[in-house]
Amino acid sequence: MKIIITGSLGNISKPLTEKLVHNGHQVTVISTRPERQAEIENIGAQAAIGSMEDVDFLTATFATADAVYCMESLAPNAFFDKDLDVSAAIIQICKNYQKAIQESGVKKVIHLSSIGAHTDKGVGLLAFHYQAEQIFNELDDDVSIKFMRPVGFYYNMLAFIPTIKAQGTIVSNYGGDNKEPWVSPLDIASVIAQEFEKPFEGRTVRYIASDEVAPNEVAAVLGQAVGKPDLQWTAIPDEAFLNRLVSFGMNPQTARGFTEMNAARLNGILYEDYYKHRPELGPHKLNDYAKEFAAIYHQQ
């Protein structure tokens, strides 16, 4: 197949591109950065340099494909941009994808959604994934869509490093011994590559996870990896957590979304649909990721 990959050479898109090229597909990778072209071509793919905000560019690029992989991303500092409505920006990208898919005539779509996309109530910042899926679902019925819903990414744990170093603890507004799912981008890429090999029929949803571990277990594993075997996970009230995020410079609207999202981990809303459709866990476990975490921890 001729497949378009969005997301440049990110944590998911790069290993996904490598797998698809290995499987014999003709892959084109969309990137906003011209300097990425050589690296993309070295993998065996073609580069299409342009923006997710440019509908005409997306339409022309999608028109050359049998299938497309759509993901939304913002600038690395987006959560700290006081003038940016993160949810609105993501929704606009989804509308651009919708129009490009409709006008290009491509009929096979894989969309990177998320845990929490089953509802727009009580999941905080993740509500935009529900809205995004609704936008894609407005496409004509002859467009087949596979919604991929990964859980929390391991690399989100890197946000723990500052408080581990400054206070000797992980701080959040949830915690405890209830297990929750985490995922490696490598396992996400593997699942999506598998889905490209399967028939596209109607609209489907697939959750993706690598491991299920409790916050206190996370602290133990990461602490052992970085040489702090007594590392603890400290849960603080929602308001205190919100104030911490804002004090770090996060956009207050985004900070409220993060706080509610974390509360949804504790009250069960976030994972209620996941446990109804629990996936087979991928091979990359927390203990594997802890080595990568420790390397980054000691570099900072």
Rank of each mutant, 00 (worst) to 15 (best):
I5M: 04
I5G: 01
T6K: 04
L9Q: 12
K14I: 00
P15C: 14
T17M: 07
T17C: 11
L20R: 10
H22P: 00
N23R: 14
G24D: 08
Q26H: 09
S31P: 05
R33I: 08
R36C: 01
A38W: 01
I40Y: 13
I43K: 10
A47L: 11
A48V: 06
M52N: 00
D54K: 07
L58N: 13
T59I: 04
T59L: 04
F62S: 06
A63G: 02
A63F: 06
A65P: 03
D66E: 15
S73M: 11
L74R: 07
P76A: 11
P76W: 05
N77R: 02
A78Y: 05
F79N: 14
F79V: 09
D85P: 04
S87V: 06
I91M: 12
I91C: 05
Q92Y: 08
N96E: 05
K99M: 01
I101C: 12
I101Q: 09
E103H: 10
S104G: 04
G105P: 03
K107N: 09
K108W: 04
I110H: 04
L112S: 10
G116H: 04
T119Y: 01
K121I: 13
G124A: 07
Y130Q: 08
A132Y: 06
A132H: 08
E133W: 01
N137S: 11
D141L: 00
D142Y: 01
V143S: 10
I145N: 09
V151K: 03
F153V: 01
Y155C: 07
I161E: 03
I161Q: 06
K165W: 03
K165L: 08
K165H: 06
A166H: 06
Q167D: 15
Q167V: 04
I170H: 07
V171R: 05
G175Q: 08
G176Y: 09
D177I: 02
N178Y: 09
N178G: 11
W182H: 15
D187N: 15
I188Q: 14
Q194V: 00
Q194K: 13
E195G: 08
F196Q: 13
F196P: 11
P199Q: 12
A209V: 06
N216L: 02
N216F: 06
A219E: 12
K228L: 13
K228S: 04
Q232I: 10
I236F: 07
P237H: 12
D238P: 02
D238C: 02
D238L: 02
E239H: 09
S247A: 15
F248G: 07
P252V: 01
P252W: 02
T254N: 12
M261I: 00
A263C: 02
R265N: 12
L266V: 00
N267P: 02
N267G: 05
I269Q: 15
I269T: 15
I269W: 02
H277D: 03
R278E: 15
L281Q: 11
P283C: 08
N287K: 13
Y289M: 05
F293V: 05
A294Q: 07
A295R: 12
H298Y: 06
Q299N: 07
